[in-house]
Computed example of a mutant assay.
Amino acid sequence: MMTVDLNSDLGESFGPWPMGDDVAMLDIVTSANIACGFHAGDPAGILKVLRAAAARGVVVGAHVGYRDLVGFGRRNMDPSSEELVGDTIYQIGALQGLAKAAGTTVRYVKPHGALYNTISNDARQAGDVIAAIKAVDPSLILMALAGAPIVKQARAAGLTVVCEAFADRAYNADGSLVSRRAPGAVIHDPDQVAERMLRLATEGRITTIDGDDIELEAQTICVHGDTPTAVALAQRLREAFTGRGIRLAAFAEVKDGAARG
């Protein structure tokens, strides 16, 4: 049976300012990328989401980002290697401590926003994030943009990499994501999202914003938790997959099962 992982970015509320519906998303997704306090999230809120994920058996990962609360981690930055390695280690370590208190374990790392996009092609910053992950725990899985150079770079460095596609984002012909500043960058129609992701899961292809088809290797699919239609999109996507006989399971658990088998 074909298996697909659904992930979402959660734990991004800050104090009295809510961001998305984490509890509803945790009832739908199989993996949760939890903010680590640099681009969003506060310790009490992060701990609450981790406990909710643990209660539902949802696998959690560290959603590390630039030190950019004001810009929600979506502004391009150029930290030194020393800074980026330290910041990444700090965020993973903080989430590991909170996860232990919540009765769960950090299984993977997914960079956020501008950091995610930058390291997809910037070998220096990618190397810093890779080095930080290896320094903390080389068994942590890196979630990276499908088709990006960082996938090969991280695998060559000895990390396990899971390739990610985005259900609610438009793609360029080179496999990169269309800038959020461009019209049509974010897709809000649940039926359109479901149709695109079913085709990706079964054929390994997706239609770009220009109408061309490209091939993508993806083991996990992200629905952003901070969009107004996030829960409806995720629910529609889950229904579409199960309706086609596609099993939903966390990629970390699937890899563990394969290793044990």
Rank of each mutant, 00 (worst) to 15 (best):
A52K: 08
H63W: 11
Q96V: 08
K48P: 05
V64Y: 11
S31D: 04
F38R: 00
G103A: 10
A55S: 15
N76T: 12
L115F: 08
G93L: 10
T105F: 10
V70P: 05
Y66G: 02
Y90T: 06
L84T: 02
I119D: 00
V106E: 02
A40Q: 05
Y116P: 12
L95K: 01
V60Q: 03
N117C: 00
G61R: 03
R56E: 07
G113P: 12
K48A: 15
V59S: 14
D122K: 01
A94P: 01
D42I: 03
A52I: 02
A114G: 09
L98N: 04
Q96D: 08
G57T: 10
K100I: 09
G37F: 11
S31W: 06
P43Q: 04
V106L: 07
T88D: 07
F72N: 01
F38N: 01
A101V: 14
E82W: 05
H39T: 06
V60C: 11
A114Q: 00
G86P: 03
V85Q: 08
A32C: 03
D68G: 04
S80P: 13
G103K: 09
V60A: 04
R124L: 14
T105C: 07
V85T: 10
P43E: 10
A44D: 15
R67D: 14
V70H: 13
D68H: 12
A101Y: 09
A35F: 11
G37D: 08
A32V: 06
K110P: 13
L47C: 03
A94I: 13
R67P: 11
P43A: 12
V64M: 07
H112L: 09
I119M: 15
V64S: 02
M77C: 07
K100M: 11
Q96N: 09
V85A: 00
G97I: 09
I46V: 14
V109W: 10
T105G: 00
L47R: 13
A40M: 08
A55E: 15
V49L: 09
E83I: 07
G61A: 06
G37L: 08
V59A: 14
N76D: 14
E82T: 12
K100E: 15
R74T: 04
C36G: 02
G45P: 02
S80Q: 05
A114E: 00
G57W: 10
V106W: 06
S31A: 14
G41P: 03
R124D: 14
G65D: 05
G61E: 05
A54E: 07
S81L: 06
A99H: 02
Q96A: 12
V106P: 03
G113W: 01
G103I: 09
S80G: 15
D78H: 14
G86T: 10
P111Q: 02
D68Y: 12
V85N: 04
K110M: 01
